[in-house]
Design a binder for these strands. Structure first.
Lengths: 155, 155
DNA sequence: TAGAACGCTGGAGTGCACTCCAAGCAAGCG
DNA sequence: CGCTTGCTTGGAGTGCACTCCAGCGTTCTA
């Protein structure tokens, strides 16, 4: 048996997290221009082309005149990339992940490790941010008290 | 009444969060060279000088030969800056905050607002990261399942 | 007192993630 | 047909946050 999926069935599940980017065309009629994808993803056309150049995107279908035509599959991939970007993962690492996906099923373990590592990173980043919240709250309440003191002084 | 503190009594409280950067000299004997401060904060000497240049640090005391001599107060400030940096606040905003502190007590409200905004930003960043965790976990369990399937196939 | 180690300055360089530019082709419209 | 709009390319430019360099002076250790 071979697990017949390369980031398709589960990336479409991925999109259930994130903004309700609903306006998609049905599969088979899924041909988006670069500017449509830009509007859908919030990335610029420049960035989309750049992602392709650096190998973060698979090669995108072209129209008979050579213009890019993105598919729902591409949109799914971009949604995942968007999530990974939010984790703070460097672009180079995302490119590495993309390469693993392109290389086929035998890279499952490596992808698994990469994602687990990313998960750890996210967890510690959250902890870090919660640490800053504590400091922020202490300072905020200091200034709130100072404000109250000043107000009562004026009264 | 005037609240007689300019980021001193409460920044020393701030340091209770963060790594146990204990090896401090007592007040009065608190003169640190730039490389000591670098070791204490994890910043490079370059960065410390740069922080000063851009106005993120107050002017640091100098020895009779013109070398920087940092005080405990400076260390406290650096601890706060470190925390703000962890929030992802841009350096320009930290400089703005530093300017407010230098300008005196009448900027309390503005500092308060800035910190509250930062707090909001941190909160939404945490939420964002938790969103990415959901996606990561889904993908990780996909690969874990795939790994199990492959293993049972070999059995 | 020699030499290593540390510190000073202004300014240039680095790496990342875009971001923009110029020049040109292609499609749609009045 | 001309005009606008959208897309193409390789390569150059931008902004941020450092990071390093050259050339010099100072301070510590043997």
């Amino acid at each position: 048996m071979t697990v017949t999926e390369t980031e398709t069935t589960d990336t479409s599940a991925d999109t259930c997290a994130g903004p309700p980017q609903g306006d998609r065309r049905p599969d088979g009629a899924d041909k988006y221009t670069i500017s449509e994808v830009a509007a859908l993803t919030g990335l610029t056309a420049h960035t989309l082309r750049w992602y392709e150049r650096i190998g973060l995107m698979p090669h995108i279908d072209r129209s008979h005149t050579g213009q890019r035509r993105y598919s729902n599959r591409d949109l799914d991939w971009l949604a995942l990339v968007g999530k990974l970007r939010l984790t703070g993962m460097p672009v180079a690492d995302m490119v590495r992940y993309a390469e693993l996906v392109r290389s086929g099923d035998h890279t499952y373990t490596e992808r698994f490790e990469l994602l687990k590592q990313t998960r750890e990173d996210v967890l510690s980043r959250i902890a870090e941010l919660q640490g800053t919240l504590a400091v922020l709250d202490r300072k905020i309440s200091f200034y709130a008290d100072a404000g109250r003191a000043l107000a009562s002084e004026r009264a």
